[in-house]
Design a binder for these strands. Structure first.
Lengths: 179, 179
DNA sequence: TACCAAGTAGACTGCGCAGTCTATGTCTGT
DNA sequence: ACAGACATAGACTGCGCAGTCTACTTGGTA
């Protein structure tokens, strides 16, 4: 993951694993198969779930935001993303698989959670899928982009997640009287 | 851009340009220098500006959203991003340069625009930089991620930008009486 | 004890590519 | 007419790497 598919030779991968090159080829038919398996295994590490339950909505969204950012913005999460993005044009079917089992899964969980909150009247009735997309975008986009480009991240502000959730809550607070 | 730095050989680049390999090396000392120059040139194509003026705020934000998405989510914008992201760990100073002259520049323009609207009372007073980050995240994150992973995009919904701006306007509408 | 599955070190092949070199055009200005 | 700058085709070198092959070791099972 650190060096990307093309940057890491099978010799170095084997050495790093403390294993002979032939042993790698005993387990995987090709370097590409090893790469795909590694990516596929890593997918579960970028999915975040929420259990649907009543309670303090903003706090639970803040917890979700921290969990999501911990996974996606960690050095491992960023390296996974980096390694993947460059290779996907060659591997379209892998891309669709990862999309379904990774980001799409997280998105589905969040949308269901938001849908529940809307039904309980804790959020304004609206398209929960769109709301989930907006929230994930606010939580991830800027900091991921900055980390990818600037390589070293200069401390992403302590209250970031709380501010983002506050923004989301304002956009989706239930109507108060006639607008 | 289509094949990434490692995927495109200098021979093929020269052939595609209808030029001899030596001619490439007459203009650039190395393949890497050619890559950096190409990226640096492409930066201006991902910057979006707004001129500060009064008027229908949502419509102007919608126009901005369309312009931003046209640049970042086009096949060229995505290929540029893809090619860049994989190589940045090797080229940290290039990454910082591009960040400053690309995304950061767009962000600065938007934040200034939002700041003006806040000062005029068209938006609630708040941190304009944070507001700009939220809006860009909502406009780009989901669709860019989906395009990067799924490779083929299944029509991103006609009213997308209008919905996003409506969400942003709700989050940042001026206070109406006591909240 | 004999056997076998799996691991190990390391040599080896073939290929693609960055970068160089040579020998040969082909314009432009004087 | 000529010189100098630049383009071109194509051969060539050296290197790194995917994948194979060989010869040897080891640990578990019957």
């Amino acid at each position: 993951m650190k060096d990307g598919f093309r940057g890491a030779s099978v010799d170095r991968i084997a050495a790093a694993a403390g294993v002979a090159k032939q042993t790698v080829y005993n387990h995987f038919p090709s370097k590409e198969a090893l790469f795909e398996e590694t990516i596929r295994t890593g997918v579960r590490d970028v999915v975040v779930e929420l259990d649907d339950a009543p309670g303090n909505l903003p706090d639970r969204l803040v917890a979700y935001g921290h969990a999501l950012r911990r996974k996606l913005l960690s050095p491992e999460g960023l390296a996974w993303f980096r390694a993947l993005v460059g290779e996907l044009p060659r591997l379209p079917e892998l891309g669709r698989l990862i999309w379904r089992e990774g980001p799409m899964e997280t998105h589905r969980h969040l949308a269901e959670f938001i849908d529940g909150a809307m039904r309980r009247g804790e959020l304004r009735q609206d398209d929960p899928a769109l709301a989930a997309e907006m929230l994930n975008g606010m939580l991830i986009h800027y900091d991921r982009t900055r980390s990818l480009f600037a390589v070293v991240e200069p401390a992403p502000a302590a209250q970031r997640v709380e501010q983002i959730i506050a923004c989301f809550m304002r956009a989706y607070q239930p109507d108060r009287g006639i607008q």
